[in-house]
Amino acid sequence: MSLTEYTGRKRVRIGALALVVLIVGGAGLTVRSGIALDRLFTAGFATRSVEMATPIALAAIGGLYAEKSGVFNIGLEGFMIFGAFSAAASMYALGGTSPTQGQVWLAVAVSAVISTLITVAFAVLLIRYEADQIVAGLAVWFIGLGFAPFTAAIIWGSRSSPGLASVNSVAFGQSPFVILTVLIVLASWVVLYRTRYGYWVQAAGENPEALDTAGVDVTRVRYATVIFSGAMAGLGGAVLLAHAGNFVGIGDTMVEGRGWIGIVAYLFGNYNPIGAAGAALLFGALDMLNVQFQTVGIEVSARLVNLLPYVAVIIVLSAWGKTRMPSSVGESYESED
């Protein structure tokens, strides 16, 4: 018991340390440039950070469920690309280059359904055919990187879409998807820790045999979580698109590593949905810091500031490496019967 207590405390300390470093670093920069902190950390910055964090948080929630149940879904990035692209494509199909708000919503919903269907196939390969989880997950990313721009080129004659429409904000200048995400985060916390399904998910990842002898079908639990993870990542991609208003398919596409950051977000959040969402917020803020620096006129290369989240991930992961993975992750489970 001292061991868990120790790592728990260590974790909190490192987390606090990371935050302090970031704040002090930010403050240092600000003071050197003679710019007051209140101009850097504005309400607009907060809004944009939350908006930036939303897709990451959604992917993280999905990935967290899959991994909790013992399946490492490393393909989140790929599913986000599918989600973003299919949202753009359905928006274009519904309303051309000037879709209405209703069509934006419908497109996001259609996109979530499409991502779910793709994930079903992925889940069958992973669970039924015992695919190597890491290699298959990478493949999903490659497939997304290839086929999304490919189809975009077929539809629009270019890897990126023309300007479509982004979702209108509702209360407090916030996107409705931000509110939806908050609800999803809370709901997934409740399901994971307060319902029998959550118990089963946790047991499937930690000791599938115990769950099996308790009369619950481990395979079914894992199917559910993997499909959920793809659906959430797809929704994350769709939300990203609904915020941006057009699809970008050059380079690493508009998803640009957010799925990977999502994985780190839930590791950082120690598999707790609320923690993961908090971590996503941190990464979202780091992402937006760049814009903020430019607005207040701090001369830092945009490219370097963009790297901050990645550097943070490596530091966090190394200092925090002992994040406790569910013990049966990556092992396929076959029941005795």
Binding site: V190, R194, R196, Y199, Q202, N207, A210, L211, A214, V216
Partner: peptide
Amino acid sequence: FQLVKPMTVLQNIVLGHEPTDNGLV
């Protein structure tokens, strides 16, 4: 032991046979 280590004693005991109330355990 067929126990799920990070889960609580109560959760382990009821696993698979959870009494529920409005969907929650």
